[in-house]
Amino acid sequence: MTLHDDAVRVLKDYADQEELRQLYLDHLTARPDGMWKSCEVGHLTASALVIDPERERVLLTLHRKLGMWLQMGGHCEPGDASVALAALREAGEESGIRGLTLLRAGEPVRLDRHPIPGPCRWHLDVQYAALAPAGAVAEISEESLELRWFGYDEVADVADESVVRLMERARAAL
């Protein structure tokens, strides 16, 4: 199964956000390259909100290019076997935490379509929630200016509405 096929399967099985889910599926039907950064009209991305082992805080990154507090995530790569594993890979790379596990049996928590600067117009983000193992230590990557754990009640003060909605859906999945 290709990554494109996996994305279609994941989206067909996703039972929420019907209008946005259908937009993603239509995009993939019309664009065989719709998984890749080279698809300038837009492409799927994968992200994961990292939750601490005590399930009281989330780890956000101050994104180097965007200057915003965000969940870990990014572009799918040809070596990714699934969208879920792409999200897990990105979360591990950007947080430095090994042993993250996806919640909800590896199913997405929500979808978020957002405009981006540059030649590409849209990211069609498939968002997951990941639990950090006990004793996890975050290590900053070159993509981040800073990494910080935030209590649930602090997220709205630093992040945009899409991160807040992701956090709310992730908490519901705990």
Rank of each mutant, 00 (worst) to 15 (best):
M1W: 15
M1L: 12
M1K: 08
T2W: 04
T2C: 06
D5N: 08
R9E: 10
R9Q: 13
V10P: 00
K12C: 14
D13T: 02
Y14R: 05
Y14T: 09
D16A: 15
Q17P: 07
E18M: 05
E18R: 14
E19F: 08
L20W: 06
R21N: 13
Q22S: 10
Q22G: 12
Y24C: 12
D26P: 05
D26V: 12
H27W: 15
L28G: 01
A30G: 13
R31Y: 08
P32T: 03
M35R: 03
M35H: 05
M35N: 06
W36Y: 12
K37C: 01
K37S: 07
S38W: 05
S38A: 15
C39M: 13
V41T: 12
L44I: 10
L49Y: 06
D52C: 02
D52V: 01
P53V: 06
P53N: 07
P53G: 06
E54N: 04
E56A: 06
E56W: 11
E56I: 02
V58C: 11
V58W: 02
L60H: 10
R64V: 05
R64H: 13
K65H: 03
L66M: 13
G67A: 09
M68Y: 00
M68E: 12
M68P: 00
W69L: 04
W69Q: 04
L70T: 11
Q71F: 11
G73I: 02
G73K: 05
G74D: 05
H75F: 06
G79K: 04
G79V: 04
D80R: 07
D80P: 11
V83L: 04
A84T: 01
A84S: 08
A86S: 15
A87R: 02
L88D: 08
A91T: 06
G92W: 08
E94A: 03
G96V: 04
R98F: 14
L102W: 04
A105G: 09
A105F: 04
A105H: 14
E107V: 01
E107M: 14
E107T: 09
P108N: 03
V109F: 01
R110T: 12
L111R: 12
L111N: 01
L111Q: 02
D112V: 09
D112T: 12
H114S: 06
P115A: 12
P115Q: 10
I116L: 10
I116G: 01
P119V: 07
C120L: 14
C120Y: 09
H123N: 13
L124E: 09
V126P: 06
V126A: 03
Q127L: 15
A129L: 01
A129K: 10
A130S: 04
A132N: 03
A132K: 01
P133N: 03
A136D: 03
A138E: 14
I140A: 11
E143V: 12
L145Q: 14
L145W: 00
L145N: 10
E146T: 07
L147T: 12
L147A: 04
R148W: 00
F150E: 01
F150K: 02
G151I: 00
G151T: 15
Y152G: 09
D153L: 03
D153I: 01
D153S: 13
E154V: 02
E154G: 07
A156S: 14
A156N: 02
A156E: 13
D157K: 06
V158P: 08
A159G: 03
D160T: 06
S162W: 00
V163W: 00
R165H: 13
R165F: 14
M167R: 08
M167G: 01
M167Y: 01
E168A: 14
A170C: 10
A170R: 05
A172L: 13
A173L: 09
A173S: 13
